[in-house]
Amino acid sequence: MSRAALLVLSDGRFPAGGHAHSGGAEAAVVAGRIRNADDLAAFCRGRLHTTGLTAAALAAAAAHGHDPLALDEAADARTPSPALRAVARKLGRQLMRAARATWPGEELDAFALARPRGGHQPVVLGLTARSAGLAPEDAAHCAAYETVGGPATAVVRLLSLNPFDATAVLARLAPELDHVAELAAAAARGPIGELPAFSAPLLDIAAEAHAARPVRLFAS
């Protein structure tokens, strides 16, 4: 594996469109559920252990070599919110464009052809990691980190939170991120039907409310 490839893929500046999304943080700020760094930490921790683990496992499974179409179907079943399915596919499509330019490969091409409107982002992420020569656990780390990195960056803008405090939240979550990535990579060695499917009710409910809001800073 190449450690540098992992840095390139996980870099927030990787041109995959993630910066336009807050991972549900904007909706939580609007609802008054995130008001300070402590709330942000609780939000990120909850997201990490629910949809974060689910996404990390899908990414690891795709990197492991499971059928991406079956994983895409599994991702649909794990995403009851149509707003979140649309976001996942849009982000998947954007990531696919960047991935085919950076680490081109036949598997990426085949999945892009089968899902022209975009596959679920964690599945595309896992395939991208595979194409970059990364391991399933690397893909899981990437997916898990995205589930907390996005909200932390967004809340800095939404609440004018001190960026040092937001980054400290992420740093303190590092051991749990490692743990989630390990769980995801272990699950990826098993059958698709047994991959984690943890969900977060408030994220699902708030996603639909956010999608219906006429004025918002972040798309999700």
Binding site: C44, G46, L202
Partner: peptide, 8 residues
């Protein structure tokens, strides 16, 4: 962690 928090 986080099950009782603002995401869940």
């Amino acid at each position: 962690g986080g099950w009782d928090g603002p995401a869940v």
